[in-house]
Structure formats: structure tokens, C-alpha cells
């Protein structure tokens, strides 16, 4: 459902670029509702560390995810640049609004569809199923996040890893 083929037939896609621990990632901009400054985050004791927080987004209680944990990055304290990107994900067929913690949010930019490349299976430090495809801007490579898969993978088991790898090779 979410791979590079979905964008075939389009000249370019708009993405929001953000930084996690110095690495640049991108989210498809059409999925993004708004970008919030750091606000007070309520911890949910006993929840998965990846989604341990809740924030108030215009009267809605929204889970806050820290993607750095999914990419094996260090969790550092919030800085003046820290932002919360509010976006929709689809989990088990239902849309859920979530906030994503970003160390820094850069810009909305257009990526030419022609230069989008499929995620290489090897040579990446992150799990390949979390990356939808790789875009290129100038000489820089930008990994476009497969946000649905990142949230679907909530059990940290290798089986889901293997399953999605299978799914990919089948497709």
C-alpha cells in the first residue's frame, strides 16, 4: 500500500523535512496537520517508551511518539528547536492522529518523483521497512518515512520484521 509505486504518474511530491539526531528524514506533507512548539507532555506510566506521552492538540488528546527510539538513536533533552509534528497514521485500518517529536523541523519541499528510489535492502543502518523510499535533493539523500509501518510495529519482535521483509520481496 505504501511504496514507491503509489507515487507513479506524479511529477513530484511535497514533503516536510525534519531532523532526528542530525539525520534528515521526510514525511509526505499532505499527511501533516500542523507543527507545534514543545508543550507540556503527560507521561503515560506503563506504556511503550516509543509512545509514552500524551499532548493536547486543540482539545484532542493525542499520543506523542519518539521516532528516535525506533531508529536506535539516543533520546536527548528538548531544545529550543524541538517541535511536534501532528499527522495522521492508519493503524489496523483506522486513522489515528499522532504527534511526532522532531529535534528540528526544516521545511516543506518538493521532491521530483523521477529521482525517488526504492529503499535498498542493505547498506542502511535503519530497518528498511520503516523507510518508504529514498529521495534526493541536490547531493543529499532524504529517507521518506513509512509512518504507518513504524506505528504498526509496536511489539519490537523480529517476526514483524521478517514478515514485512517477505511482503516487500513479494511485491
Amino acid at each position: 500500500m505504501t511504496d514507491i509505486t503509489a507515487w507513479q504518474g506524479r511529477d513530484s511530491i511535497e514533503v516536510l523535512t525534519l531532523e532526528l539526531q542530525g539525520e534528515t528524514f521526510a514525511l509526505e506533507a499532505t499527511q501533516v496537520y500542523e507543527i507545534l512548539d514543545q508543550t507540556s507532555v503527560t507521561e503515560v506510566p506503563g506504556s511503550h517508551p516509543f509512545i509514552s506521552g500524551l499532548v493536547n492538540v486543540r482539545g484532542k488528546v493525542v499520543p506523542l511518539a519518539d521516532l528516535r527510539l525506533k531508529f536506535g538513536m539516543e533520546q536527548t533533552a528538548a531544545t529550543i528547536d524541538t517541535r511536534i509534528v501532528v499527522t495522521d497514521i492508519v493503524l489496523d485500518g483506522e486513522p489515528i492522529t499522532v504527534g511526532i517529536l522532531a529535534d528540528k523541523v526544516n521545511e516543506v519541499t518538493e521532491l521530483t518523483a523521477a529521482v525517488l528510489q526504492e529503499t535498498p535492502k542493505i547498506g542502511m543502518k535503519w530497518r528498511p521497512e520503516f523507510i518508504r523510499c529514498i529521495g534526493k535533493r541536490g547531493s543529499e539523500f532524504i529517507a521518506i518515512l513509512d509512518i504507518d509501518r513504524i506505528f504498526a510495529d509496536n511489539d519490537e519482535t523480529t517476526s514483524t520484521h521478517a514478515a514485512s521483509a517477505l511482503e516487500q520481496s513479494a511485491a
Binding site: 509512545i51 488528546v61 499520543p63 499522532v98 509496536n154
Partner: peptide, 8 residues
């Protein structure tokens, strides 16, 4: 709470 926190 969202589905993400259903287990808590």
C-alpha cells in the same frame, strides 16, 4: 485513549 495505548 487511542489504540496505541490500549494495552495500558
Amino acid at each position: 485513549l487511542s489504540k496505541l495505548h490500549a494495552k495500558v
